[in-house]
Structure formats: structure tokens, C-alpha cells
Amino acid sequence: MKRVYSFGSIVCLLILLLSGNAFADSILCASTTSTENSGLFGHILPIFEKDTGIEVKLVARGTGAALEMGRRGDADVVFVHAKEQELEAVADGFFVDRHDVMYNDFVIIGSPDDPASIKGLTSAVDAFKKIADYQTVFVSRGDQSGTHTKELAIWKRTAIDPAGQKWYLEVGQGMEKTQRIGNEKRAYVLTDRGTWLATKDQLEMEILMEGDPVLFNQYGIMAVNPEKHSHVKYEQAMTFIKWMISDTGQTAIDGFRDKLGNSLFIPNAK
């Protein structure tokens, strides 16, 4: 009998633990790994929560997955970086009120000995062509993320189809891991400057190509269309969006520094 009691007390304890979640005014934001892993959200969300009393729950995925979460109605607001896809999804009626928020840029990194000699080139398209010509290993995210989308757009302009080539590795992982694999393979990687700056001290790589306007990386925010999904918290989502593009929000983004003191994102809401 004693055993039954102790089992029962464990069950009761678990039920108590289960009932813990207090109700709070909160929204769910689907965003990308770069915004969470860099620490940006850890910096700005507490400020927003203090200003408005709305709590933002963040689910960090690749841009493709974050957009899909929004389309399915599993998030209230989406904050990603693939402007063309975003505008397309708005046109399809899944999202409303899209705004530019901030930007940073993509860079091509690789081992310092630069086997395909892309250093000094001013066009990312030319750099990709050279990498393909020399058949040096290129590590791709391969996960429909914003970075992957950008990479594919550049490949498209080179008129080279890298898929299936033995020097082209699609790893299907986040930016950090992709960089790390590139580091081990002495390969080239297209990465965002934020992730690069946050982790470069762990990598034997350097920036070999930067500054091409094609490598511009715009982040945008938009609300899930309440006409598609009536349960979404559109009003709170709009409070968040308006705050992000307000002077207060833009100043908060501008003030963010990563753990090494780098400024990673430049606010540019209109």
C-alpha cells in the first residue's frame, strides 16, 4: 500500500507542476536563428515588454520554416530576411503590414589561402563562378533559410547549377554549424556578417569577398493576416510591429552589441 501512496504523491506533484503556467498577454513571433543566436532578441524584447506589457515568445527557425509557421497560423508575427519571399507571401494574402526593420550584409568566407582566388573581386556572381570553375568545396545551408535563398539567387545569376556537384555540400543546418563544417573542409561559405562576427574567433577562416550590393540582407517584419487565421493576436502583433519601426525600437536595435562588442544590425525602417 505504501508504494501506491508514494506513486500517488508523485502523480500529484506532477499535476501541480503542470498547472503552473500563468496567463499573460503574449504573442508568438517566428523568426530566424540569426536573430536569436546573436542575442538581438535577448536585448530588445525586455525593452519592448517593459514598454507595452506584451510578452513575445520567440520560436527561432530558418526563414522558410518561419514563413511556413506564419502561413499555417502557428505564429502571430513573423520576422525574417528574405524580402522577395516575404512580399510574395503578402501578395498571396497570408501576411499583412510588412515593414523593413533593419539590415546587415552577407559575406563570403573561406580559408585564408583562398584556393579559387576570389579575394579582390567586387562581384559575388564572379566569385561564385570562380569557385565553381576551380571546383573548390562550397558548403551550402541547403535549408530554405534566408541565407540559402540568397545563395541560390546568386547561383542562378551565374547560370551554374551547383546541385549534385561533388564540390557542393548541402548540409541542411544552421549558419553556425554550416560555418563550422566549412572550416573543417577548408571550404567557401556564404554567411551573414552577424553570425560571422560572433563566431570568427573559433574559425580559421576570413572574409574573402564583401561589399557587393547583391549581398545586402534586409530583415522585415509582418503580421499574420487575421482574415486567414481569426485566432491570431493581430492587435498585439501590430503593437510589436509599430514598436519595432518606431524610434524607440530602432534605437534599441542600434544599441545592440554582441558579446564581442560588434554592432550587428543597422536599423532602416521608414
Partner: peptide, 13 residues
């Protein structure tokens, strides 16, 4: 998921 059969329960995440 909200677009799935049990979405009305709001249990995801």
C-alpha cells in the same frame, strides 16, 4: 497546427 485537425485547441508550442 492551427491549420491541422486539432488546431482549435491552441496547444502547439
Amino acid at each position: 497546427s492551427r491549420s491541422g485537425p486539432l488546431g482549435f485547441m491552441g496547444l502547439l508550442y
